[in-house]
Structure formats: structure tokens, C-alpha cells
Nucleic acid binder design. Structure first.
Lengths: 261, 261
DNA sequence: AAGTGGTCTAGACCACTCG
DNA sequence: GAGTGGTCTAGACCACTTA
């Protein structure tokens, strides 16, 4: 028999997998079903960020499929930056605290390509009622509580960006300014470590605007300087919006780098 | 025997493939070697944009490897948007003239998510000496000839961007304003069709600036309006730079959309 | 040496498109 | 029905890390 063998063993998980034996109009590949099971385990926190997941052979046995099928599922998850494969070591849950890929979502770069030391300086952290804009991003009612964080981002010890960050109140209840100031990890690393909520994907909208008095002061620029406005919506597992932010990037010494494939 | 079989047949191409029989310090996977062979054929124009490449089975026979190995090579090329797989039909060379993915590199979107009709209006096309900036992008000498094109990009019949485009003179000799005006295809589609040079990858650097008189006039904006400056370096096969451009995007009604993974 | 991911093969069968 | 890509399996062996 060549595929989808009728395992007589009693793996609980496998019983949920749809058969593809006959011509099936609602056909879904096995590896996608496996991918979803892994995704569910990731979302449920079965394997915390940075930890190693079971080996391909183990997973294949658990799910009652061949190693190749598990492999294809993991391949896709690795391509989406949810898992990291390390030959000889194992497969690990991706983490924003990973020193090898810090600030993975930050696209601001110095014009001269010098290596950059990144540092975040939190200014405030408070629960506030959402305004219209923020509420619509989270699909909640205006006035509902959200957590608001303001911070300066320094590149090579120079204030490069000012961020107004809004977090879903239910996901990050208890976040304090002290946490943000004491921790050394990047912002998303802190959220991941303290609240078990990992940012896996984000969308940004960029616009050119002129700095108002407030932003100009934060970035030590003169009023009216052109500024890059970056609005970001960030998602965790299950495409749930857990952050919306408004970033003001100075682009006189820096630029926003993007790759088109 | 399980892999890298000693095919006794006399496929010319295979003779160039490095064996992985023994512990090989300079080990390169077979599928990457196959990938490179396919890439070479693409770069050489053996299979023009939009055309179908040989089937996986054919390629496997030609290269003297298994279908699975060819498959993995094609998988990666498809992931890089160099090939497009269509089940039941075949595998095709990606094309900027493909009506399914027009203006693939354009990230400017209307603020309301309406479907957009895109149209390019060429203003000028001439061979000029490269200035310092352009020369350094192409790694040529200042004063060396390049082709300069200016154009307005309209979204839903509204001037949304003004582009100053510079093209490598050796790759696009003979390009005229008439060609650009008469053709219906997008800009990269024209270059691809007329000169066989396909843009496969680009890098962009974004900055906020204020519109000078010239740009303001082209986009019907008042002088000093904040404008998104987008500098693009575009590459063809072999990472050869064939285009550098400076785009001025208005972002009052539009925004630059980006995905972070 | 053991355990992990990575490569490669051979073969079977399914899904899809087109004539 | 023929041809294409897509899925799945089983098995062998290689590359790499760790102990």
C-alpha cells in the first residue's frame, strides 16, 4: 500500500485525520492536517518559545503518518518562521528572545550600513480607554480598555523612532513600566516570556507626514520635519490581533529597508 | 542502492553533478545543483517568460536524478517566484506580463481597499550620463551612459506616484518613449518581452521627504507636502543590477503596504 | 555511539486540466 | 484517457551535534 495506510494501532490523534482514500471532494492533504495539529500545540503553549519540539520520528509515530509527511508540515512552519530547524540538534519553537534574530520585525536601518546596537527606552505604560482608531484595529468598542505603552527606540545610542504601542488588555494584563525597564530582552521577547503570547506576523502601512510638536521633541527634531509614519497590526496564533502601534521613524540618518521578491 | 545511483546512461548534463557518495567535505545537495542548472537555463533564456518548462519527469530523466529531487529544486524556485506551478497544466516561467500578478513589486495601495486599476504614463526616455548616485548603484563610472525614464503612475486614474527610472544601457539599448507609450503591459512586462530581461528581485529604501517644486507639480500637490521617497535597486538573474529608480509616492490617499513574517 | 535533521530514491496513487 | 503536478510511504544513508 502506498499511502494513507490503515493503521490498526490506536493512536488517538490520528482518528481525527480525514481519509483521502477515495476521490474526496473536500480533500485536504495529510501534511496540512499535521501542520494544523502542530500549530494547535504551539498556540496552546505545549511547547514554549525557544524549546525543542519532539523529533520528526516521534511526531510521525504520534500522528500515525510517515516521517516525510511530518517533515513537509514542519518545512512549511519553518518557512513561516514559526519553527527553527537546527541540523543535529532538533527543531525549536521560534522566539523573539533568540539572540540570533533580535528585533526581527524592525526594518529601520542606518544609512551607513554599520552594525547596530538596538535599545528600547519605555516612557510610560498604562491602561487607557481605546479611541476609535485603536478600537477598530482590535475589533472592540471605543472606550474599552487597552494597554498603552510609549517608548523611544535607540539605534547606536541615538533616538531613531518614537512608538505609541497598544496591546490587547486581555492578553497582557499586569504589564508594568518596571517590567519593560528592567528586562534586557527586546519588547516582543518580554511579552513572549512573561505572557506566553508570541507575535508571529504583522502588517505595516507607511506614510510620510510632518512631525508635530510632541514627536519632534521626542526625537530631538525641529517642528515640521518630514517623518515616516508606520502603523503596525501584529498577530499571534490564530490570526488574533494582540498589538497595534503607531511608529514615528526619523529618516534623515536612517531608512526603512524592504525586500521585494 | 538508495541514492546517487551510478547511472550508466550517458546524460551529458549529469556528468557535471558532484557525487555525494562518500563523506564529502565540500558537500552540496543534488537538488541545489539541479536548481542551479534550471537557473542557468532561465538566465540563458532557454525558456522565455510565460512559457512552460519541461515536466518534472522529463527533467528528472535529463538530469539523471529522481523526480523527487527535481521537485525539490522546482519547489524552491517557485517559492522565490521564479517559477509558477499549475497543477494539471505544468510549470511555467514567471512573468511580469502575467495578468494574474501585475505590478508585483508595487506596494502602494489606496487607503480604502478598493480594487485598483493601474496605469503608467511615460513622460520621457533618453540616454544620459549617470550621475554619482546612479553610477554607484550600477557600479559604473559617473558619466557612463544609462537610460533615463520618467513616468507618472496612476491608481484609479489618479496620479499617485512619480518615478525617475534608470536602466542599464547595455541591457535595454533601443528602448524608446514610443514603446513605453504604445504597449499596454506593465513596465517590467515590456522590458521582459522586448529585451528578455526579467526583474526577479529588488531592494527598496524608504524615506519621508518634502516635495520640491518639480515633484509637487507632477503629482498636483502643493510645494512642501510630505512625500514618501522610495529608492529601488532591481536585479535580474545572477544578481545583476539592471535598474535603479527613485519613486515619489503621495501618501495622503495612499499608503505603502508591507508584510512582516 | 546515539540522536537529530537532511538528502535521495522508487513506486504507488490522487487531483487537476485538456482534448 | 493522457499528461501534468501533488501527496504519501518505506527505506537507506549522509551530515551534524552532543556526550
Amino acid at each position: 500500500m502506498s499511502h494513507a495506510p490503515s493503521h490498526s494501532s490506536s493512536f488517538v490523534i490520528q482518528s481525527g485525520l480525514a481519509s483521502r482514500r477515495a476521490k474526496n471532494p473536500a480533500f485536504r492533504p495529510l501534511y496540512q492536517q499535521i501542520k494544523e495539529l502542530i500549530l494547535r500545540s504551539l498556540g496552546a503553549g505545549d511547547w514554549p518559545p525557544g524549546s525543542m519540539i519532539p523529533s520528526e520520528i516521534d511526531l510521525a509515530a504520534q500522528y500515525g503518518v510517515s516521517q516525510g509527511t511530518v517533515r513537509k508540515a514542519i518545512d512549511e512552519l519553518a518557512a513561516e518562521n514559526l519553527l527553527v530547524r537546527l541540523q543535529g540538534k532538533g527543531t525549536f519553537v521560534a522566539s523573539h528572545s533568540d539572540p540570533n534574530a533580535p528585533y526581527r520585525f524592525l526594518r529601520l536601518r542606518p544609512d551607513d550600513g554599520r552594525a547596530l546596537e538596538k535599545r528600547s527606552q519605555a516612557l510610560s505604560c498604562a491602561v487607557i480607554p481605546a479611541d476609535e482608531t485603536v478600537a477598530s484595529a482590535f475589533a472592540i468598542q471605543a472606550g474599552d480598555p487597552v494597554i498603552a505603552v510609549e517608548r523611544i527606540l535607540c539605534l547606536n545610542n541615538d533616538a531613531a523612532a518614537f512608538d505609541q504601542i497598544f496591546l490587547a488588555a486581555d492578553s497582557f494584563a499586569g504589564l508594568t513600566l518596571e517590567m519593560l525597564r528592567q528586562e534586557q530582552r527586546p519588547f516582543y521577547g518580554i511579552l513572549e516570556g512573561r505572557f506566553g503570547v508570541r507575535m508571529i506576523h504583522a502588517e505595516e502601512k507607511l506614510r510620510a507626514i510632518t512631525a508635530d510638536a510632541r514627536v519632534a521633541e521626542r526625537l530631538a527634531l525641529s517642528n515640521g520635519t518630514p517623518i515616516l509614519l508606520v502603523e503596525r497590526t501584529a498577530y499571534t496564533y490564530g490570526d488574533k490581533v494582540v498589538e497595534w502601534r503607531r511608529g514615528f521613524y526619523r529618516t534623515d540618518r536612517y531608512h526603512y529597508a524592504n525586500e521585494l521578491g
